[in-house]
Design a protein around this nucleic acid. Sequence first.
DNA 1: TTAACAATTGAGATTCAGTCTCAATCTCAA
DNA 2: TTGAGATTGAGACTGAATCTCAATTGTTAA
Lengths: 142, 142
Amino acid sequence: MFNQKKKFQEYLKSKSLAFSKERKIILDEVFSTSGHFEAEDLLFSLRKKKKRVSRATVYRTLDLLVKSGSVSKINFGEAHSHYEHILEQEYHGHLVCLKCGKIIEFENEKIGKLKNEEAKRNNFQIMRHSLEFYGYCSRCRK
Amino acid sequence: MFNQKKKFQEYLKSKSLAFSKERKIILDEVFSTSGHFEAEDLLFSLRKKKKRVSRATVYRTLDLLVKSGSVSKINFGEAHSHYEHILEQEYHGHLVCLKCGKIIEFENEKIGKLKNEEAKRNNFQIMRHSLEFYGYCSRCRK
DNA sequence: TTAACAATTGAGATTCAGTCTCAATCTCAA
DNA sequence: TTGAGATTGAGACTGAATCTCAATTGTTAA
C-alpha cells in the first residue's frame, strides 16, 4: 500500500505535477477500498463523505494512477471499466461468473512464464497484462 | 469458417430464430473480414456496399454470434469493443502495443494448462477466456 | 514582492458506443 | 387465412467518459 501511494507521489514529482488536495483525497479513497471498484462508486463514496471532488477530477486522477502504475484498469465485459490497486501479486487473473457476476481472483506463476515466452518470441516489451476466464461458478453451474 | 457459419445457423435453429436476409448479410461480412473488427466498421462497410442493415440489427446480430460461440468479443482497453471470429486456435491471446496500437496474435498451449488448473482449483466451468499483454512492440520500444 | 506562466479544478456541455422503443413487416404452423 | 411470435429500421435514449473554459491555485524568475 505505502509503496503504491509513494509510487504515485513520485510519478507526480517526476512529471512536475502537483500532489493536490483532490489527488490526495482520491488516492486515500482508492487505497482504503479493497479489491475492485468502479469510477462512479468512488465518486459517490466521496460524495457520501462530503469530500467534494468533481467527476472530471476523479477520472483524470484515475488516469494518472494508472499511468503511474499503482492502479490498473480492468474490463469484465461490461460497458464501464473497473479498477483495482496493484498488489504485490504479479501473476494475477480473474474468474468471472457469467450468471451471478461473482469475481474470483487467482494467482498463477504460469502467467509469468507465458509472458516471458511471448515477449521474447515477438520482441515485445510487456508492461502489464489482463487475463479473464469467463464461465460458471460452483453455485451457478448445473 | 464453414463450420463457424454452420454453427451459427444451428444455434438459430435450436432457438427457433430465423436465418433472415439481414443475419445472412452480417454473417457473410463478418467471415469475409480477417482478424479483428469493430461493430461500427462492419456497419459502414455494409453501407458502402449498399447493403442496408440498421445499426440495431448489427448489434443484435453480433450478440447472437457471440452467444452462438462463433464470434468473440474482445476488449483492448479502448472504449468500444472489438470482435473476432473464432478460429480453430483455442489457446489464443493478444499483444497490444501501447504506442502504435499494433496487435499481434499468439497461440500458446500454456493457456490451456492454466485454464484447467484454475477451473479445477476454483470449481469453475470455464467457457472462454481473454488474455492481453500490453506493452511496446519492437518498433516502439527504445 | 510581484509579474508571468503553468497546472488544477468544477460545472456542465458534449461525445459516442451501445440499447431501447415501437410500429410496420415478415414467417410459418394450424 | 389467421394469428402469434420473430424481425426489422429509425430514431430516441442512456450512461460512461471526455472536453471546454473560466476561475483558482501553485511556481518560478526577476
